[in-house]
Each structure stands twice: as C-alpha cells, then as structure tokens.
C-alpha cells in the first residue's frame, strides 16, 4: 500500500471532480481502459470526487464526454508538479540546498565540549587540557584524535585515574575519573604510645617493633610499639632495599591493666528532710560509695573490661561528725596503646 502511494506521488496525480449522471459508467469505463482511479467519493448523486494519474487525465476527460460526464481537475499533486513548481522558484530550491549543505558542513565540527566526572578537579582544567590536544569548540571532528586527547589529559592532570573522550554528533564529552588519594593521616608513619599508666598483659604487633613486654609497667606517653625500625632487622633491610625510609606506621595492640579512682562523700544534711532513713549511717555510706563509683567510671574508656573494684570507706566522725567519705578504685583491662603520628616532616 505504501509502495502504491509512493508510486502515485512519483508519477503525479490530479484530483478530479466528475459531474454527471452516469458516474458508475465512468468508473467502469476507466477500469476497462486501464485508467487507475482511487480515493473515490460520491459527494452527491451527480458528483464524484477522486484521484487519477495526471497522465491519464486526457483519456478520462474524453471518456467522460462520451458518457455526458464533465471531468474537471481541482488539484494537482506529486513529484512532477512539485518539480514544475520548483523550476519556477529556483531561489527557493537553491536556498534549501544551501541550508542542507550548511547544516551538513556545521555538523562536521565539535561545538560543545562537556566534562563528566570531575569531582575535585575544576572542569575548566579538564577543558584546557583537552583544548591543548585539539579538542575545543570549533574543531573539525575529523581532527580530534581521541587517544591524543586522553594522553594530554593524563599528562596535564596527574590526578586522573582514567579518561575517555566520547564524540556524539557535535557534542564531545570528556569523561574522567579521579584518583582516590589515600588520607595522608592514615599513612603517616608513627609510634603506638601509651594513653595511660598501666601494667602490660599482652602485646600484639602488626607493624613496627614492640618496646614493651607483658609484665612491664608503662607510663602515659611512653612508646609501646616503635615505628622506627632498628638497623639490621629484616623489616629494616626490606624497607631500605625498596628505597623507602626505615620508618613505618606502627600498629598493634597492647592490652594491659589500668586503674581508675573516684571519690565521694555524703553528709546528713544533704538527705531529704522528709526522708529520715536517708540520714542513717548505712544510707550515707551507700550514697558516698555510689558517688565515688560514678566518678571513677566516668573516665573509663568504653571498651574497658572491669576486672576488679576496691572500695574504701572512711567514717571520720572525729573531724566532721556524720560525714561519710568513700574512695573507689576500679581495675580494668583495656587497650593501652594509641597511634601517634611522627611530627610532619614531609617535603
């Protein structure tokens, strides 16, 4: 059907109006003579609208005359008529051709350069590096060598992990992925030092050299695991062989006992007036111990495991009658070491 419609257009057709009584006879006669008709519509009993090939019109009109039917042309369509019209208006045709030509010519250039994926890098820097390799708005598409652009991007921007250029029509998209830099605070060398006075119970070293052993007592600030390697050790030699400074980021665990103290006191006059039992010696003692314990626990690190608690109660009636004082000492097992970076001395 589509092919047939195309054929009508290519050959050119006329829209006809047939006026008369013997319209069926006109149609039958046309068919018998091999004249194609289509889109016929009976507008009224004496009027028929339809289409026929332009080349057949004369024969159709002659047939109509024989049958007493007037066949008029009310419209023309198809390629031959368009061509005739175009010949009368060469300027329009030329304009159309120029338009298509210019459009085609303009499509040969890159007009837009987009940057995709720049997170910390300024897109302008990416564009600049791309422009240095010839990828800029106005550059002919054929002149853009993607490998060169990618190479230029990598040279200009060492922080790129990956780069690619995608050309789609007149739009070039520079896709980049930035290298994820390790946080320098996590790689800087240093020692593991004691956070608190304590008694070492267990030492596990994953990097560096241990300076303490189970049974040692340590003071807050002391180095427990050293990041500075001793000359002659295997780790030291490996670092030197690799051309690296013999200083590492010490890591490991130093578990030890530490002590936390708290003090509390309770006075009879603190007890609530409507609660006479609150002023009894036993209640005061409970309150004092509770305060001391709370104070001791306040500074306990969260991961500490309590292994012992010692309570000392002093009821010093001679000095201050009725006042109860208590001291609580909590013994815990906790991580004593904490990483401490060496003073920054990066170039």
């Amino acid at each position: 059907m589509l092919v047939r419609r195309l054929w009508w257009h290519v050959r050119g057709y006329v829209i006809i109006r047939a006026y008369g009584r013997r319209l069926e006879a006109l149609i039958n006669g046309a068919v018998r003579e091999g004249l194609a008709l289509w889109d016929l519509e009976r507008a009224s009993s004496a009027l028929l609208l339809g289409r026929a090939f332009a080349a057949d019109y004369r024969r159709l009109a002659r047939l109509g005359r024989r049958l007493g039917v007037r066949v008029d042309v009310v419209g023309k369509a198809g390629l031959p008529f368009w061509a005739a019209q175009a010949r009368r208006r060469p300027g329009l045709v030329l304009g159309g051709a120029v338009f298509v030509g210019v459009l085609y010519w303009l499509a040969q250039f890159v007009w837009f350069v987009h940057v995709d994926g720049a997170q910390t890098l300024p897109p302008a820097a990416v564009l600049e590096a791309a422009a240095a390799a010839g990828l800029r708005p106005g550059a002919p598409r054929a002149d853009v060598r993607r490998e060169d652009v990618v190479r230029s991007l990598h040279l200009a921007l060492p922080r790129l992990a990956w780069a690619a250029v995608e050309l789609r029509g007149t739009v070039a998209t520079v896709r980049v992925v930035e290298r994820t830099e390790a946080d320098p605070a996590l790689t800087r060398p240093g020692h593991v030092v004691a956070v608190r006075d304590g008694l070492v119970e267990r030492v596990v070293v994953t990097a560096g050299e241990p300076l303490v052993a189970p049974g040692d007592t340590v003071q807050a600030g002391m180095t427990l695991i050293s990041g500075a390697l001793t000359p002659g050790t295997r780790a030291y030699e490996e670092r030197v062989q690799a051309g690296l400074p013999p200083v590492v980021r010490a890591a490991g665990s130093v578990l030890g006992r530490a002590w936390y103290r708290g003090y509390g006191e309770a006075r009879p006059e603190d007890a609530a007036a409507d609660d006479p039992a609150g002023a009894s010696p036993a209640a005061l003692t409970r309150a004092a111990v509770e305060r001391a314990r709370r104070q001791a626990r306040a500074s306990l690190p969260p991961e500490a495991r309590v292994i012992d608690e010692e309570v000392v109660v002093v009821d010093d009636r001679g000095v201050e009658p009725g006042v109860v004082r208590a001291a609580v000492t909590i013994t815990v097992l906790q991580e004593l070491g904490r990483f401490s970076p060496l003073a920054a001395e990066e170039p």
């Binding site: 069926e24 149609i27 194609a36 008709l37 289509w38 889109d39 016929l40 009976r42 009993s45």
Partner: peptide, 30 residues
C-alpha cells in the same frame, strides 16, 4: 451502483451488495 450508503458490484457469481455508511472507493483496478 455506487453511493455512500450502498454499492452493488457485478461479479461472475452474481451481484455483491455492500451497504454501510460513508462508503468510498479506496482504489479500483481491473
């Protein structure tokens, strides 16, 4: 016969009658 409501077509086996509304001849060939 052809009008928008009825169409009678001659065939070798008699007359084919089509009735309806807004009948048009899309195309006619031998």
């Amino acid at each position: 016969q052809y009008d928008p409501r009825a169409m009678r077509i001659r065939t070798a086996r008699g007359e084919l009658v089509i009735t309806g509304a807004g009948l048009r001849i899309g195309s006619i060939l031998p």
